[in-house]
Design a protein around this nucleic acid. Structure first.
Length: 271
DNA sequence: CTGAGCACCTGAGGGC
DNA sequence: TGCCCTCAGGTGCTCA
């Protein structure tokens, strides 16, 4: 699924067409994603504002004191289409503006989410209340990370994929950032020095920023809202490259499952 | 509290 | 061509 760069790319694709726009037509074709979906009638006719991303969620306020929350799960994507385009299998949510722009959420595995939450309850909503700082915000510093890792015996890779530590870092960008920082994904989180936390924060920010600039990574499912492919997958240094030479030292890259997710690293460069 | 394991669901790709 | 197995960018529940 989309990690932070793919969600950010999706947001940037749809926001210009939906910010301030009224939803002339809403269809909720799947009654259930990860959680039950809201009735279309509650959303149709509302005007959207303040489209934004938090963690891997896309949020948009409606002019009835509610906020729509959308998550792409593992396999979700949003594509902009003309209303005349034929519906595809797994098109679960359709939002059409009065201008005739349609955004369709297509999510084969249905791990995504579409919720309608009273805006006043957003900050305390269980999905959002415990989320850590945004990695691209000033709050995400080496000092913060060093403190957040205190007492954590889990592998550093699992720690940075924990949204309570930092928002939005998923399986690909965790491996890529750790490689760039020269840190073994297996290192105990609490064992990282302050200096190494500084380096890791720097490289998480750099990796995510570059990926956003590339329009995200397109593996199986992801496309930008325009339908174009992202191209950051061509910049992966370790992800998916087990057995291939390290781009830095040519040592064969290793892979191993860490907390249920396949992880890639260079055993020579990363300590 | 933490961490590990499993579950949710569909589809793509490889081996036979 | 088809069957069976494994794997996939996420998260949230249960259990020890």
């Amino acid at each position: 699924m989309p990690e932070l760069p793919e969600v950010e790319t999706t947001l940037r694709g749809i926001a210009p067409h939906f910010e301030g726009q009224t939803l002339a037509l809403v269809q909720v074709r799947a009654p259930m994603l990860r959680q039950p979906t809201p009735q279309a009638a509650l959303i149709q006719g509302r005007t959207l504002s303040n489209l934004r991303r938090r963690n891997k969620y896309i949020l948009a306020d409606t002019n009835d004191a509610h906020t729509l929350l959308l998550h792409l799960g593992m396999s979700g994507r949003i594509v902009l289409t003309p209303p005349t385009a034929p519906l595809l299998k797994h098109d679960h949510i359709i939002l059409r503006t009065a201008n005739g722009v349609e955004a369709r959420l297509n999510d084969p595995r249905r791990f995504g989410l579409f919720l309608r939450i009273p805006t006043a309850q957003l900050a305390t909503h269980p999905l959002l209340a415990a989320i850590g700082p945004e990695p691209l915000s000033p709050a995400f510093t080496g000092a913060y990370l060093h403190k957040a890792l205190r007492g954590k015996s889990v592998a550093i890779k699992a720690a940075i994929m924990d949204g309570r530590v930092v928002a939005g870092v998923g399986n690909i960008y965790a491996s890529e950032s750790l490689f760039r920082a020269g840190i073994s994904p297996l290192a105990a989180a609490a064992s990282l020095s302050r200096r190494r936390c500084d380096a890791l924060v720097f490289h998480i920010i750099a990796t995510l920023t570059e990926a956003i600039a590339a329009g995200g990574s397109s593996l199986r499912d992801f496309t930008q809202a325009s339908g174009e492919l992202g191209y950051f997958q061509h910049s992966f240094r370790v992800y998916g490259r087990a057995g291939q030479p390290c781009p830095s030292c040519a040592t064969p890259l290793k892979s191993k499952v860490i907390s249920q997710r396949n992880t890639f690293w260079c055993p020579a460069c990363q300590r």
